[in-house]
Simulated scan of single mutants.
Amino acid sequence: MNDTQRRILLGRVVGAFGVRGQVKIESWTEPREAIFRYQPWTLRDPQGAERELQGARGRETGKHLVATFPGIEDRDAVEALRGTEIFVPRSALPPPKAGEFYWVDLEGLRVLNVDGADYGTVSHLFSTGANDVLVARGERERLIPFVEPDFVKSVDFDAGTILVDWDADF
């Protein structure tokens, strides 16, 4: 799927804030409030129904962002959105800086170790707080700390590979 068709999950609605229709959002952008720069959003509710939303505004609070959505004016309407995922097209995101990657761009790349062993492809990445972890799925699943240059030696988008220094027995 090319970048104009590929959608990126940027966050989700986690609940209501107050009684006037404000929405608590969990954002996975860096910084968190950058999610408001990438609109329109495609909202997908837990049942799979989708709709487009333009004009969301918000501010940062402690743990979440608090947003207002056009047309959402009371707590009940917000509660109906709980669990709704927020997507944008990959093409809406700016190019990453040199030496940086969007996790979604790493998904599907082949993972090879320095000895030539093929660990399969990148399924996804997740954060542990201490470091990010690359999940490679091949003949089995491997969790590889995404720590450059200690374990991740190189990322080659042209070749479609990630070279890692990770023992085959781990």
Rank of each mutant, 00 (worst) to 15 (best):
G116T: 11
G83S: 08
F170M: 15
E50T: 15
N113M: 09
G99T: 05
R32Q: 08
D118K: 14
R51E: 05
T4S: 07
S27E: 05
D118S: 09
D118L: 14
R82A: 05
L143E: 03
G11I: 02
L143Q: 03
F170Y: 15
E100H: 15
V122Y: 01
F17C: 07
F101A: 05
G120T: 12
A80P: 13
T121R: 13
P46C: 09
V147L: 01
G138Q: 13
A130G: 03
T121D: 11
G48H: 00
P89K: 15
G15Y: 03
P149H: 10
V104A: 10
V111G: 08
G15A: 04
A130K: 06
R82Q: 07
G11A: 08
L53W: 02
W103E: 03
E100V: 06
A56G: 12
Y102S: 08
W166V: 10
F151S: 11
R142H: 15
A117E: 12
G58T: 11
V104C: 09
D76V: 09
A16Y: 02
L81I: 06
E85C: 11
A136T: 02
I144L: 05
L9M: 07
V66A: 05
R82P: 01
F151Y: 14
E107V: 15
F69E: 02
S27Q: 11
A98H: 04
P94K: 14
L53Y: 01
V164G: 00
A168S: 11
K153S: 01
R90A: 15
S154A: 15
V155R: 01
A98Y: 02
R110N: 13
E100M: 13
P96N: 08
W103R: 00
S91D: 07
E52D: 07
W28Q: 02
D105R: 08
W166R: 11
D76N: 09
R142F: 13
E33F: 02
P94N: 12
I72W: 07
G58N: 04
E73M: 04
D3N: 11
T4R: 08
Q47K: 10
G129Q: 09
F36L: 07
E107Y: 12
D132E: 04
R44L: 04
G120A: 09
R59N: 03
I86G: 02
R37C: 06
A34K: 09
E141G: 07
N131R: 01
E73N: 12
